[in-house]
Write a protein that binds this DNA or RNA. Structure first.
Ligand SMILES: [Mn+2]
Ligand SMILES: [Mn+2]
Ligand SMILES: [Zn+2]
Ligand SMILES: [Zn+2]
Lengths: 117, 117
DNA sequence: TATTAAAAAAGAATAATTCTCATTTAAGAA
DNA sequence: TTCTTAAATGAGAATTATTCTTTTTTAATA
């Protein structure tokens, strides 16, 4: 179930967003890095793959993707924003020591929370 | 149930902390401002009351007070730390629009959460 | 009163994010 | 295809809450 560049283009098109190499790279990076990367992780990843990209562009594009519900922002205890390409409802297990975020699905917890009016 | 300067001195003494005018002012400010003030709220409040204080001192003292469990840090959606002088266990209702934090006590919720192993 | 470790003052440094503005480009029109 | 232009990007300066560094002051104890 690897996501292709074509899939990414389609996601952008569905949202009526202009297709740019930067947007494709960034969305792909979020998927590939897939453990809630920081903006910096994404910048590093894209620059390693030989294409340069401006820092401001990355933040701008990430915001656009969040606004269009293609990715999500994840806050942690630290002052660095994390990004999440998984849009299905899920919780996070978070270790404040090493700043690791693990996806966590628990229907029982969901039920308890939704029953609590 | 107003907290006096003497109460504040005693709290500091109980924790084995040196009594300084800055520590007294800051802890008092947290109590008086009492709606989860920012470091800046505290600085403004103390400076209005005619005494000058260094920004770094306020952050340092707040950290000391947190370490000694005299106050708590409260994170919000914004990048500004809030401080809480109420040490009894309580939840927070948070409005991300106006950044207001309201204390919230709900034993039923506490029970549900503690029963959820 | 003298001693001294701890605290505070002052202001520079940090760093993630945002902002500004000149340049480039994607996408639709002709 | 070429033209047009609103939108996107690049480059780097600006922002800002917080931390750090160094010097000076002070609270607590003897
Ligand atoms: Mn996740
Ligand atoms: Mn509170
Ligand atoms: Zn860990
Ligand atoms: Zn509100």
């Amino acid at each position: 179930m690897n996501i292709t560049i074509e899939d990414i283009r389609n996601k952008l098109i569905e949202k009526g967003l202009k297709i740019t190499p930067q947007r494709i790279s960034i969305l792909q990076a979020v998927y590939v890095l897939n453990n809630h990367p920081t903006a910096d992780n994404i910048i590093e990843y894209i620059r390693e793959a030989h294409s340069n990209i401006a820092t401001g562009t990355v933040y701008k594009v990430l915001d656009t993707l969040v606004e269009n519900q293609l990715i999500r922002k994840v806050k942690t205890d630290r002052d660095i924003m994390r990004y999440d390409g998984i849009m299905e409802k899920h919780h996070h297990l978070y270790c404040s020591t090493c700043d690791l975020i693990e996806d966590y699905i628990d229907e029982e917890l969901d039920n308890i929370l939704s029953e609590y009016l």
